[in-house]
Amino acid sequence: MSFRADRITGALIATFGGVLYLFIIPRFVDSSQSSWIRPDTIPLATSFVIVLCGAFLVFKPTAHSLQNLRGHFKAVLFFLLLALGLYAMSMFGFVYIAPLLALSLMLLIGERRLLWLGLGVIGVPFAIWLLVVRVLERSLP
């Protein structure tokens, strides 16, 4: 039974709360008092609680284990691919990028069968276009 994962999580959460409390909230939230609650009261209070709870988690961890590293690595790849896809979508639009994004995702998942690839790359984006543009009469991103 390992408590290491929770200790790391607690430390990261406490650091996040501390950075918010000390640097980000004072800089990006107005602290003027003109009503019962100042604009920075709730953000400061919540970040303080986050620091406290993070510290508690370091000293009183539960037996929580992390998923294997390979899984996290794959997740990072998927997130990067999506970020890249969204950037490309902002340049060229959904219609041109969606099939490429679907193809990349399906290949990364491990799909190699042409029929399913064809359905995912052409059929699904076409169905979405049909639903959004023709049926709902809305524009695609």
């Binding site: 998942i109 491990g110 399913w116 995912g120 699904v124 695609l140």
Partner: peptide
């Protein structure tokens, strides 16, 4: 799963 999840991602974006 490849087609189910890739379609779900596109639907989320749209």
């Amino acid at each position: 799963e490849s087609i189910i999840f890739s379609s779900a991602i596109l639907l989320c974006i749209v």
